[in-house]
Amino acid sequence: MFVLVNLKAYAADAVGIATTAREVSEESGVRIAVAPQAARLAAVADTGVETWAQHVSPVEHGSHTGSTLAEAAAMAGADGTLINHSERRLRLADIDGALDAAERAELETIVCANNPAQVGAAAALGPDAVAVEPPELIGGDVSVSQADPDIVEDAVAAAEAVDDSVDVLCGAGISSGEDLDAAGELGAEGVLLASGVAKADDPRAALADLVEPLS
Results as ranks from 00 to 15, higher is better:
1 M>T: 07
3 V>K: 12
7 L>F: 15
7 L>Q: 13
8 K>M: 10
14 A>T: 10
18 A>K: 02
19 T>H: 10
21 A>N: 03
22 R>S: 02
22 R>P: 03
27 E>L: 09
29 G>D: 08
29 G>W: 04
30 V>K: 02
31 R>I: 09
36 P>W: 03
41 L>E: 02
45 A>S: 06
45 A>G: 05
46 D>Q: 08
47 T>F: 14
47 T>Q: 10
52 W>S: 00
53 A>E: 03
53 A>R: 01
54 Q>W: 02
56 V>H: 00
61 H>V: 00
63 S>P: 14
66 G>L: 00
68 T>Q: 05
78 A>G: 01
80 G>S: 06
82 L>K: 01
82 L>T: 02
83 I>L: 10
85 H>K: 04
85 H>V: 12
86 S>I: 14
91 R>F: 15
100 D>M: 12
109 T>P: 07
109 T>L: 04
110 I>H: 04
111 V>R: 06
111 V>Q: 06
114 N>G: 03
116 P>S: 10
124 A>C: 07
125 L>V: 01
125 L>F: 04
126 G>T: 05
127 P>T: 07
128 D>A: 10
131 A>W: 11
132 V>I: 15
137 L>P: 12
139 G>A: 04
140 G>I: 13
141 D>T: 09
142 V>M: 06
145 S>Y: 15
145 S>C: 15
149 P>C: 09
150 D>I: 06
152 V>F: 13
159 A>M: 07
162 V>S: 00
163 D>V: 01
166 V>W: 09
166 V>I: 09
167 D>I: 04
168 V>K: 05
168 V>L: 11
174 I>C: 14
174 I>L: 09
175 S>L: 08
178 E>K: 08
179 D>A: 11
180 L>S: 12
181 D>T: 14
183 A>K: 11
185 E>S: 11
187 G>A: 10
188 A>F: 15
192 L>C: 10
193 L>K: 08
193 L>Y: 02
194 A>F: 03
194 A>E: 08
196 G>N: 13
198 A>T: 14
198 A>Y: 13
200 A>W: 05
201 D>R: 03
206 A>W: 13
206 A>R: 10
206 A>C: 15
207 L>E: 09
209 D>W: 14
209 D>M: 11
